[in-house]
Design a protein around this nucleic acid. Structure first.
Lengths: 243, 243
DNA sequence: CCTCGGCAGAATTTCGACAAAATCTCCGTC
DNA sequence: GACGGAGATTTTGTCGAAATTCTGCCGAGG
């Protein structure tokens, strides 16, 4: 009852609360790639001691969102275009494999879930403002659910968890590039095509469409990222904390 | 100079040393699935304070080798036959996807690496004792290298890291089942067939052979595991630390 | 002018003690 | 005899300080 605030008293332990906040700050791009994460500053900034902070950072490092340098602390993971390439490739390979298996094993309940997820996604507006593009959290959640539903029948929990992790990393790159709406694209149509192919049990077509879906976004984000950072930028330069 | 012992003073920090030892103890089966990991006992047992121990456990939980129960500490991850199924399926899907891409992208250097890895593996004895089966660490390392070499040209670092993690989890199940040599199998021939198909750029055949390679081992291990635990065993029962 | 060695300063890592939560025990009651 | 609850015990989670390690700087030497 008293857990009313958005992220207030929901976390049972300080370490998990700090982990969640820190992760959100990295994923949203508020903490830029390569930033040195000084324990003291963080502890003060997030209002926690060194122990929970350290634990949160350690977990983040295991998730790939931070890097650990022994005896030299932590830093936010780099985000160079080359790394984005590897990420996209990992995503395409992992998700296509999961999708193929899902199509092979999926039953009627899986089909229903895919249909429902796509329907709900179509009911939501991509942007909260019809004039200027501004991401709609509900649409993002629906989008996530749709892609999860597609893979869910593959029967490989670890692989699904891995796909979730890669999805989050990809979200970070999107936030960093701050790419607005993509021109010349009809994402709803792409989703519809993927769903149709999956429900038709056409694994090859569905995988190809899904791969295209991710590679297109990756190309846009990569171009924007490269434009900002310039060629040769590693994304791990030693920037300092801004606030 | 003083770093003579096998795993003695190599780790720069206590937390990483404890993490390594704890992980090895879980992977080798010395710490059985579902075991409650009490912080005090562990700290005493491994000769470290609570902070490094906690950090190691947190990392282990992120890797999937331990489970975290908020305010109730940690326990060794379960190892039920059903979980093994999911693991094998994840492995087959992930590694086959990586192998296909590796075959598609691999250059001459990749081919060389595969040939060399297979050759070296064949030069090593599977068992240190020709009479009674006892795993040869060198063969294990060579085996690991061979499978890594196969996938290495896929250009997806995250996916490769994921495959490494799944390989370790699989090793844990093998250790738990303590399966001796597999009857009616010629692993060297299986490896040779996989390598040949890969070098011939026959992605379908190579993936099929690799999948068979893992599924066979999985079936043996699963059978042994089921025989020990009995049907319905969850593998997360609350056992206590033995010493 | 450039390089090397050592000396402060800062940061990370670890320790031991404290506070909060969960589990267990034991007793009274139905 | 079984159930439920209050208190004691155990265990986890957190804090602040000490020890160890890294970083940057300054001066001596080539």
């Amino acid at each position: 009852m008293s857990q009313a605030t958005q992220n207030g008293a929901r976390d049972p332990t300080l370490a998990t609360a700090v982990h969640r906040r820190l992760r959100e700050d990295i994923l949203s791009g508020r903490l830029p790639p390569g930033l040195k994460l000084k324990l003291r500053d963080l502890a003060e900034s997030y209002g926690a001691g060194a122990s929970p902070m350290r634990e949160a950072l350690s977990k983040l490092a295991a998730e790939g969102l931070a890097e650990r340098l022994e005896h030299r602390g932590f830093r936010v993971a780099g985000a160079a275009p080359a790394q984005l390439d590897g990420l996209i490739r990992s995503r395409v390979l992992a998700e296509c494999a999961a999708l193929r298996e899902s199509i092979r094993r999926g039953d009627a309940a899986w089909e229903d879930a895919v249909v429902v997820a796509e329907h709900r996604l179509n009911r939501l507006a991509r942007s909260v403002d019809p004039q200027r593009f501004a991401t709609n959290p509900e649409w993002e959640a629906g989008h996530l659910r749709f892609h999860q539903a597609l893979l869910e029948a593959c029967g490989a929990p670890q692989l699904l968890a891995f796909c979730d992790r890669l999805r989050e990393e990809a979200r970070r790159y999107r936030a960093l590039a701050n790419t607005a709406a993509y021109p010349d694209r009809d994402v709803a149509a792409e989703h519809a095509a993927i769903a149709r192919a999956a429900l038709d049990r056409d694994a090859e077509a569905a995988a190809a469409l899904l791969a295209q879906h991710y590679e297109r976004t990756g190309a846009f984000v990569g171009a924007d990222l490269g434009r900002r950072a310039g060629p040769g930028e590693t994304g791990v330069a030693g920037r300092r904390l801004g606030g």
